[in-house]
Design a protein around this nucleic acid. Structure first.
Length: 154
DNA sequence: GCCAACGTTGGC
DNA sequence: GCCAACGTTGGC
């Protein structure tokens, strides 16, 4: 089973929003980067763990945990002309943007902040900390996952 | 708001 | 395929 980190702007959609969905599930829509899409389409599997990371906000960092509840989901916003994520070049018979659905598992007592993460040892492999890395969907290694989860639950 | 570090677009 | 111009991300 693999582990992931998904970024979201909490002003738009937060881990609290996910927990408050009726089924505590939500389609992870709006990803419009091909490398991130390829992860979502080809690599992310059901029951994988997902750190929910809050970006572009007052407290930046890992806010919660989810699990992948469905894969191969066609992002509906690509066909919605009213949506910010509308993609006129994507054809319904060959959708360009495939994503997954996630289910809330846990909201951490405190956000594990980016500044804290940067001070933790043994996280050199975390893409999040690599210079110039902007992907909103990234893999997290098993060891890094364990380290981060332990720190987040404290 | 700034700006580095990307990714995308489109003319050639 | 090249690459300049432009757009986006995201921490600060």
């Amino acid at each position: 089973m693999a582990h992931w980190l998904f970024k979201t702007e909490p002003d738009v959609f937060s881990v609290t929003d996910l927990a408050q969905r009726p089924s505590q599930r939500e389609c992870w829509d709006g990803v419009r980067n091909y490398q991130a899409r390829n992860y979502l389409r080809d690599r992310v599997q059901i029951d994988d763990d997902v750190f929910i990371y809050h970006s572009s906000c007052s407290t930046i960092g890992i806010a919660g945990l989810a699990r992948v509840s469905q894969v191969g989901v066609v992002d509906p916003t690509q066909f919605d002309p009213e949506s910010h994520y509308f993609d006129p070049k994507s054809m319904p018979d060959n959708p360009r943007w495939i994503t997954v659905e996630v289910e809330w598992k846990e909201t951490f007592p405190d956000i594990l902040s980016l500044s804290d993460i940067k001070q933790m040892p043994n996280l050199d492999e975390l893409p999040l900390l690599k210079k110039g890395h902007r992907l909103s969907i990234m893999p997290v290694g098993a060891n890094e996952y364990k380290t981060l989860l332990t720190a987040a639950r404290r």
